[in-house]
Amino acid sequence: MTQETRIIESTWDLTAYQFKIEADALSLFVKGLKDRKILGRKCGTCGTVYVPGPTYCRKCLIDIDQVVEVSQEGRLDAFTVSLADVRGKAVDNPFISCTVKLDGSDSFLMGVLEGWTDWRSVKEGMRVKVVWKDVTQGALADLSHFQLI
């Protein structure tokens, strides 16, 4: 073969697809956010607390419906510092996204970390607290960010 492969332009209409998510699981969490509460579900068999809570225990594979509120303070688990945008261009204001394990929860939440001046001084295991938006309306965005204590 000497000729290059021919390139054909085309489009792909994604609106023809429907995506379903486990609405019951997320809606408990989202409704709680309006009242500034972080709600999850606890498995009565193994005691695992999931936040946000699925309607079944992923370890025991049984339905769970015990709602629990967890603390708004927790431990900084893993994090990463965004020093560049998606095109690889350096950003003026780096930001940290992190995973946090709130006290009383066995799963982690993701969020933006604030309350630091030098990102090099941020370490795993630091204590953080939840910061809410001024007005909470029952949406994931109500949980503004995590703040270093």
């Binding site: 939440l109 993701m110 933006v112 938006k133 949406a139 994931l140 965005a141």
Partner: peptide
Amino acid sequence: SSDRGIAGL
């Protein structure tokens, strides 16, 4: 709907 909240990262 979120901008830089937990699902808009």
